Amino acid sequence: MPSAPGETFALTEEPDLIVWRMIGHVSGDDIRRLFDVQQRFCEGWPHAFVLVDVRRAEHFTPEARRIAAEGPAGGAVVLPIRANAVVGASFHIRVLGTLVSRAAALLNPTNTAPLRFFETEPEARAWLAERSREINARR
């Protein structure tokens, strides 16, 4: 839940979805809070998926980008994230997201997941649902 109106926040949806809503200027503390929600949700689950809504994001601080690339607890925590879908990213945010994703893969090779960009949330949710069906079919 958001801590105050208009701030970046994360929410979870059973059985396996974490939704990050990034709003305005996104700070390192914002990313830490998002990872905290994600980490608590993932405890005891074999996998989860992340939908990142950046339609209302205006700016990511250098600290936010660094923390996002490092992952939770500076990479010390490995989460069972199997895919990331980003909604509403501008060209600039797509480039930034791709760079952060590549940096994360280099910093934490065991904690990487595919990243895809979508124009709409229903498209992103459909792709994540398909990933979930594929993973559950293999279990």
Rank of each mutant, 00 (worst) to 15 (best):
V19S: 14
W45S: 12
A10L: 09
F49K: 09
A129W: 12
P46D: 13
L17D: 11
I135Q: 06
R94Q: 15
P122D: 09
P2L: 05
G88K: 06
A68E: 13
A68D: 14
G71R: 13
F35V: 15
N84K: 14
G75S: 10
E58Y: 03
S27V: 12
Q39K: 12
R94F: 06
D36I: 02
T120N: 09
E130N: 09
A129V: 09
E130Q: 14
P122Q: 07
R55L: 03
F91A: 11
E14Y: 08
P109M: 06
D29N: 12
P114F: 11
R40C: 10
P72G: 10
V26A: 02
H92K: 12
A83H: 03
P109V: 02
A137T: 11
A105C: 09
V87Y: 02
W20F: 15
N108W: 03
A73H: 09
F41H: 04
T98F: 10
V86W: 00
A89G: 06
I81C: 13
R21W: 03
E134S: 10
P109E: 03
T61A: 07
G74R: 04
T8L: 06
R66L: 15
L107W: 01
R133M: 12
P62I: 03
P109C: 05
V54M: 01
A57Y: 08
R40Q: 14
A126M: 08
I31L: 10
F117R: 09
R133E: 13
L11W: 02
S90Y: 04
L128Q: 06
A48D: 02
R125Q: 15
L17I: 05
E121I: 05
E58K: 14
V77D: 11
F35R: 15
D16N: 12
D29S: 07
T12M: 04
P109N: 04
F60M: 07
